[in-house]
Design a protein around this nucleic acid. Structure first.
Length: 545
RNA sequence: GCGCCCGUAGCUCAAUCGGAUAGAGCAGCGGACUUCUAAUCCGCAGGUUGCAGGUUCGAGUCCUGCCGGGCGCGCCA
């Protein structure tokens, strides 16, 4: 158990002894100012009313009643905080426990029903762009963090290879394909066409692989096959890019399967039985306005075809049927209108309210030479994720994507990203790791060989470093519970800073055997946590830089 | 107009779900390498946390109202 957990229990005991009162929540935290001790609690302040005494007085009696051998010093401060200072021996022992746990430190064993996480899910009509990159980085990191926090995670990518967008996309490719042979493809309508060089590339590949056949067969038939070729081409492209940024999925779920299995019809009739649907203007509506949405939504259009909502509700229903405790969608902020209607549909089906969860990831604003780059798929001036990766590298991209809260917009200055890459905080963290590796190389030892941690007095920088290391499990837990991936980078930067401070002041490879062993243990522990933390956001921990 | 999200140092962002003197990086200025990697460290400067109220021992954090920005509000996906 962590010090925090132990302290909470011992403070609870102290309260019981002093006042014969049972408190539910006791908050222990690490003060900002080291002068205030290693840990502090505000129980006296928060519960002054319960005790009917002034907070400082309460704090005094709690200090008197506290029985915790690992606490060297407990004192009252400020308006009524109780500050704790731990013994160096206990801190050293904790570092030993950390090393014992190794890669498992900060991680819990997976337990409970699996958590379904859906992310990216971009339509196979083009390459991934920089906005998708952020969703991929966030989603994959969140999956890793949830797993570390003990939730088994199943990662799924939902893709649509039918529907209107795909038809238009197929036609766009067909036009270019015909052009390869100097022919013109008869356009079916005024619909939008996909711009971008990759359309031509697909058409060329199609021509190279299959030849002229599609110019001979019926147009409808040809279009189907061309669209199939094109979407599969794009899926390959997307998967290659994802692999490049170390983002993986357990399953790719195909929308077409929902049509084939009859699940959509089943869901529609179930909704009809629920009494939440009605017919109007020749269409079938869901009374979603009664289920938290802004207005009612159409499920089946006048022409008898479904809106996208029908398969999407069926899809989430399908997730529930597969036994997942939670289904979370990671979506771009431009899809903010989507969750309320899906939620409405699921509520109508009688699914529990907490089954469906959504995290919206803000879009990435691209800046080039101080000016914002407006881009849209339609205009064809997208900056692809691959281009970004070519410029800044995988580690920088992944780290930058998740460094700030997914709820805030980020500006990505392309020029700056390249020219200032040396000052990127990701290198700061990686450098700390490489520095430690270098110490072990010099010592002719391996971090795995570090055994017992000889107890002894710790210098201020060592204390700060140890306390930071011991905070890691809480950070992971917190990041998972709040779905805040950016807490990991924030933590890693603080930890790296603590290490660099320690490194500057204290020499590790000294003659004194105990001191050397203790400092090597500190280094090994830091290295472990840095590597684990970097892994949680999919960034490499280099041995050399 | 309605709904959701966001306004924190010149810039990019944090702030442990109400705690003590709001912190980092970059940019600026000044220091520190004959010793394990100076991609580092230390110091200085930089703030009315958009504005105005409210809740209480205590507010960047919670409530209300404004101001400013983003996104959404299709029988498109």
């Amino acid at each position: 158990m962590s010090f925090e957990g132990r302290l909470v229990e011992d403070v609870r005991d102290a309260v019981r002894r002093a006042y014969d009162v049972e408190l539910e929540t006791i908050h222990v935290e690490r003060p900002n100012d080291p002068e205030h001790g290693d840990f502090a609690t505000n129980v006296a302040l928060a519960n002054a009313r319960v005790f009917r005494r002034n907070p400082r007085e309460v704090a005094e009696s709690l200090v008197g009643a506290l029985d915790a051998p690992y606490v060297r010093e407990a004192g009252v401060a400020g308006p009524g905080f109780v500050n704790f200072r731990l013994t160096d021996g206990a801190l050293c022992a904790e570092v030993g426990a950390l090393l014992e746990a190794g890669e498992r430190y900060g991680r819990r064993e997976p337990d409970g029903r699996p958590f379904m996480l859906e992310y990216v899910s971009v339509n196979p009509t083009g390459p991934m762009h920089v906005g998708h990159g952020r969703q991929a980085a966030y989603g994959d990191s969140l999956a890793r963090i949830l797993e570390a926090a003990g939730r088994p995670v199943y990662r799924e990518y939902y893709f649509n290879d039918g529907g209107n967008q795909i038809r238009i996309f197929g036609e766009s490719v067909a036009i270019q394909y015909a052009d390869v042979y100097g022919k013109e493809w008869p356009v079916s309508g005024p619909g939008a066409q996909y711009p971008g060089e990759y359309v031509r590339e697909i058409a060329q590949d199609l021509a190279d692989e299959r030849g002229e056949v599609y110019l001979q067969m019926s147009q409808d038939e040809a279009l189907l096959e061309i669209a199939a070729f094109a979407t599969s081409w794009c899926m390959n492209d997307i998967q290659r890019t994802l692999a490049r940024v170390r983002v993986r999925f357990d399953n790719y779920f195909n929308e077409k399967d929902l049509y084939g299995s009859g699940e959509i019809e089943a869901v529609i009739s179930e909704l009809e039985e629920s009494g939440h649907v009605y017919e109007a203007d020749g269409a079938l509506w869901l009374d979603s306005s009664k289920l938290g949405d802004d207005k009612d939504r159409v499920l089946r259009k006048q022409d008898g075809s479904y809106t996208y909502m029908a398969p999407d509700v069926a899809y989430h229903r399908n997730k529930h049927g597969r036994g997942f405790a939670t289904a979370m969608d990671v979506l771009g902020a431009d899809h903010a209108g989507y969750p309320p209607r899906i939620r409405a549909g699921l509520l109508a089906l009688g699914l529990p309210e907490d089954f469906y969860e959504v995290e919206l990831v803000r879009l990435v604003k691209l800046v080039r030479e101080g000016e914002q780059v407006k881009f849209s798929k339609r205009a064809g001036n997208v900056v692809t994720l691959d281009e970004l990766l070519d410029e800044v590298g995988e580690d920088v991209a992944r780290y930058f994507y998740v460094r700030s809260s997914h709820k805030s917009e980020i500006n990505f200055d392309l020029e700056l990203a390249v020219t200032q890459s040396d000052e990127n905080p990701v290198f700061y963290v990686q450098y700390a790791h490489a520095r430690i590796a270098s110490i072990f190389e010099r010592a002719g030892a391996s971090p795995e060989d570090v055994g017992e941690v000889p107890a002894g007095e710790l210098a201020a920088e060592e204390r700060q470093l140890v306390l930071e290391l011991l905070d890691f499990p809480r950070v992971v837990e917190n990041a998972a519970a709040r779905r805040e991936v950016h807490q990991i980078p924030t933590y890693l930067e603080t930890l790296a800073h603590r290490f660099h401070q320690f490194y500057t002041v204290h020499r590790v490879l000294v003659d004194d055997a105990d001191l050397r062993a203790r400092r090597l243990a500190l280094c090994a522990a830091t290295k472990t946590v840095l590597r684990t933390g970097l892994d949680l956001v999919g960034v490499a921990a280099p041995e050399k830089m």
